[in-house]
Computed example of a mutant assay.
Amino acid sequence: MNPVEITRGNGPVVLGLPHTGTWLPDDVRARLNECGRGLDDTDWHIHTLYEGLLPGATTVRATFHRYVIDANRDPSGQSLYPGQNTTGLVSLTDFDGHPIWDIEPTPDEIEARRVAYHAAYHAALKAEMERVRAEHGVAILYDCHSIRSRIPFLFDGILPDFNIGTNGGETCDPAIEAAVRDICARADGYSSVLNGRFKGGWTTRHYGRPHQGYHAIQMELAQSTHLTAEAAPWTLDAAKAEALRAPLAEILKTLADLAPTLGGKR
């Protein structure tokens, strides 16, 4: 199994998809408990939701599940949200705080997974970002995510529909942040927040270097926006998805249109 799928485009936008994969190596599957084998924390259907929305976009998608290793966590294991409940480089619990392993991975096993999967994904993403920047003068990473709208273990209350993360404006040009914020704010029937509970994961923070021509922004969608229910079997709701694709397409087209104004090539 190739740990990364790449669709190479000729535009300035790169879509990162670190959490849509569901593949597990046999040895990992054998050590997960029944809860873990349910793969409940997958970003269900996100690659389908974004498919074809921006002609010319490049996509980099991890095929392995986040329970193998989380491609959106700091490879050092440092927490993205100190003092808050979260999951690590290799999760020991699901998003509800329930254990997912019959036999937890050892530090040596985690390091082997980091090399085989996490490093492979980011080598591919880095290469595509560098290729796009060389071609266009800038590269804009749009990191695609989803999560249940109600998870008391991770946050209070109900999550907004659009959760935009730029690490407090540090990971992209202000024009990118403002454009995405404004599109989400005027999207009829949807709620949104900028740098709320989700401020951008390790990917956004690592690649977002606006002064060098690398811009990154994370979009965490509440799964209530596109699933029939936020529970197994995690079915995509075709009508919800079609409605949601309209503002998402507007966001991606706007990012592509902004590229020349950010010092990129026309």
Rank of each mutant, 00 (worst) to 15 (best):
131 R>L: 01
1 M>T: 14
139 A>S: 13
98 H>A: 12
191 S>R: 14
209 R>T: 07
226 H>R: 09
25 P>E: 10
126 K>G: 14
215 H>D: 03
140 I>V: 12
168 G>M: 03
143 D>M: 02
12 P>T: 10
55 P>A: 12
166 T>K: 01
196 G>N: 08
144 C>T: 05
89 L>T: 01
111 E>P: 05
16 G>V: 02
136 H>W: 11
54 L>Y: 06
119 A>V: 01
104 E>R: 13
139 A>P: 07
207 Y>W: 13
149 S>K: 08
202 W>E: 01
107 P>L: 02
116 A>D: 15
154 L>H: 08
239 A>K: 13
230 E>N: 08
171 T>G: 07
107 P>W: 04
72 N>P: 11
166 T>R: 05
157 G>H: 12
161 D>E: 07
152 P>W: 12
245 R>K: 14
91 S>A: 15
142 Y>A: 09
26 D>E: 15
92 L>P: 10
27 D>I: 03
38 G>C: 08
214 Y>P: 03
217 I>H: 07
228 T>K: 13
32 L>D: 05
190 Y>R: 10
240 K>N: 00
19 H>R: 10
134 A>D: 13
196 G>A: 04
31 R>Y: 09
31 R>P: 01
99 P>I: 07
129 M>L: 15
115 V>T: 15
182 D>Q: 15
236 L>E: 04
26 D>C: 11
254 T>L: 03
102 D>I: 04
136 H>V: 08
166 T>L: 01
152 P>N: 13
239 A>R: 14
40 D>I: 05
142 Y>W: 10
130 E>F: 09
255 L>M: 06
135 E>V: 08
237 D>F: 10
5 E>P: 09
76 S>N: 13
42 T>R: 15
171 T>Q: 02
235 T>H: 13
72 N>S: 09
72 N>G: 11
118 H>W: 15
125 L>K: 09
54 L>P: 11
72 N>A: 08
57 A>G: 09
108 D>N: 12
183 I>V: 11
236 L>K: 05
40 D>F: 04
145 H>Y: 04
80 L>C: 05
17 L>S: 09
31 R>W: 03
262 L>V: 06
121 Y>C: 00
105 P>E: 03
179 A>Q: 12
228 T>E: 14
143 D>L: 05
155 F>C: 01
119 A>W: 11
61 R>V: 03
88 G>N: 11
253 K>I: 04
166 T>N: 08
203 T>N: 11
18 P>K: 03
98 H>M: 10
69 I>Q: 06
37 R>W: 00
114 R>F: 00
78 Q>N: 12
